[in-house]
Design a protein around this nucleic acid. Structure first.
Lengths: 344, 344
DNA sequence: TTGTAGGCGTTATCAC
DNA sequence: GTGATAACGCCTACAA
């Protein structure tokens, strides 16, 4: 259909108009190029006037640098992933590096397909969530020799660089806090089929903390598929007694279901935190304005993006020479709020 | 720093291993290629074994098709934009088209810089929000000859294709409904500096409806910069009487501040909807689970993405030959809920 | 069904 | 400080 009409203006056109060679134009267009003041000015003016827009595909092919950073997230519809991406993009901006996005939708299969497809663009680094990767994904990554950055967890056996925190430990700590507050029959609310996700690590952290405190960790409520929504939490809340009738606290895998849960409990006249305590994970904005406000595990998604960008830059930008740390730990904080502030 | 080690395996390598020419390999790799069963199988097996991954930069350069769809959104941290992007990406997937994202952060200047930078990748189409564009942005777009799709509004003078609804009319309708419910001293809550955004159109729709009903539209509360958050709405809610002390209803430019507003009013013992009615825009998930649930203007962000993808495909994919409609109207619905259900 | 030739628009490299 | 030349890896166009 003859789309993508070829842009008539090429570097050669500019060169001819300026009475120089393409190379001189090429040099004039980058800051480090060695060109005399005069010719540079002349060329830049022509570039402006002729509306010349360089073709990066050609540049990449020649320089062997695509300028792409492939980035996978489970979903874009999540403040953490969105915040990370936005911070990553911003922090990369000054270098001209472009983020190429893919959404795994919490599926290792889709992740594999995405990795394969993104590799086709010859990214200079790949950022993806730690979580289960298929064998083929691992093979593709290794074979490509592209630096890999795993986010959101500190894996035992990282592929390359990793940036995150131990979901197990963090969940363990929050559970301990809840126990300290006097809760005993704590339930954990998470998705079904979370084995490939960080939900599983949070679950195991909860379990370990309960057992170490001599409490039972059997109150495990599994509902829906990742990611859990407000609606999911609301549904569970409406039927909470049917899961276990002696629950005095629910630790949710994310703030979204925690909010829905509270809403549902309020509708039934069950008071939070007096009758049942609620804790979430992620410090969503809604949690601060919920009534009561929601106890949660807080971390900065933007920090993930910023730190990742810094690592990438120091690794792949020329004249940096620094090697970024193989593992970067992100700080996490327990925010104890109204939803668990019952009198002991 | 010798990053991006060049992938040793090229199409030529596969060709030699298979004892054929590069072209035969190239053909074997796409569905429409004319190759005999036998050689295709042999080649595909080799591709698999040798871990050959095609280089799209080279392909694009040669075929003059980048496979990119440049897409600008004000922010990724918004369920509407995120939903649109996700649906767009999914609907484009079968064609192999890749979404290249940029975030304008509600700034026409940033938009200009992004358009310039993305043009460098020779996108086959550009998707961006209707909203103010700079002169240079318009010039760049025109000069590039790339098909332009404007979203979220039906502009008077579209650049190319447009997909959306009239924010003025939709806002007008909702205001009318609020008036019908008996509200008279309705305030409109929106951002400062929204002149370049759709907020301005919603504002003018509100104003027109009020004036046509013989009511005053002077209760205009402007706070913060786009996008308005729950926090912003909460702050305004805490000081509502200081803006105007006779407000009986607030129509918010988005659901986020509407939720914050309700929370703040509840904290002061002001009841919604008995004392003050609240309406939002966008049908965020939280609005359905707020107590009371929030009256809002509802539309499907995913539909925007789907429709846009369909238009793009029919326009640029070969053998489609269809011309998509220049203007596509997206349906919108007023959801009247608890936050405005006071007794008349 | 397969191959040959040439070029896509840029940059690396080396010479001047 | 500037230019000539040769890639970069693939695909279009045509020929066989």
């Amino acid at each position: 259909m003859d789309n993508l009409k070829k842009n008539p203006v090429t570097m050669e056109d500019v060169a001819q108009a300026a009475g120089v060679s393409r190379m001189t134009v090429s040099r004039a267009l980058r800051k480090d190029g060695l060109v005399s003041e005069g010719t540079r000015d002349r060329i830049l003016k022509l570039v402006e006037k002729m509306n010349y827009v360089p073709d990066q595909a050609a540049g990449s092919l020649s320089s062997q640098r695509s300028g792409f950073i492939a980035t996978l997230v489970p979903s874009i519809n999540n403040v953490h992933y969105a915040g990370m991406i936005q911070a990553l993009t911003e922090s990369l901006e000054s270098t001209g590096l472009q983020v190429l996005l893919g959404y795994t939708e919490y599926s290792a299969q889709r992740e594999e397909a995405l990795v394969e497809s993104l590799l086709t663009r010859r990214p200079e680094a790949i950022v993806l969530p730690f979580d289960g990767h298929t064998k083929r994904t691992l093979k593709l990554l290794k074979q490509s020799r592209v630096p890999v950055f795993q986010l959101w967890e500190i894996p035992d056996k990282p592929i390359g660089y990793s940036i995150g925190f131990s979901n197990h430990d963090v969940s363990y700590n929050m559970t301990q806090e809840l126990i300290t507050l006097g809760y005993r029959n704590i339930a954990f609310l998470c998705e079904t089929n979370d084995e490939w996700t960080r939900g599983a690590a949070r679950r195991s952290g909860f379990k370990a903390a309960m057992e170490n405190a001599g409490l039972s960790a059997h109150r495990m409520i599994r509902f829906g598929t990742p990611p859990m929504t407000i609606k999911d939490g609301h549904f569970v809340g409406k039927n909470l007694k049917q899961y276990y009738d002696d629950i005095d606290c629910v630790f949710c895998v994310s703030d979204a279901p925690a909010f829905g849960l509270i809403t549902a409990l309020k509708e039934q006249g069950i008071s939070v935190p007096e009758d049942i305590g609620i804790a979430g994970f992620g410090d969503f904005e809604v949690s601060r304005y919920s009534v009561p406000d929601i106890t949660t595990v807080k971390f900065s998604a933007r920090e993930f993006g910023r730190v990742t960008a810094e690592s990438i830059i120091s690794l792949i930008e020329p004249n940096q020479g620094k090697n970024p740390p193989k593992r970067h730990k992100i700080a996490v904080e327990n925010c104890m709020r109204g939803s668990t502030s019952r009198r002991r």
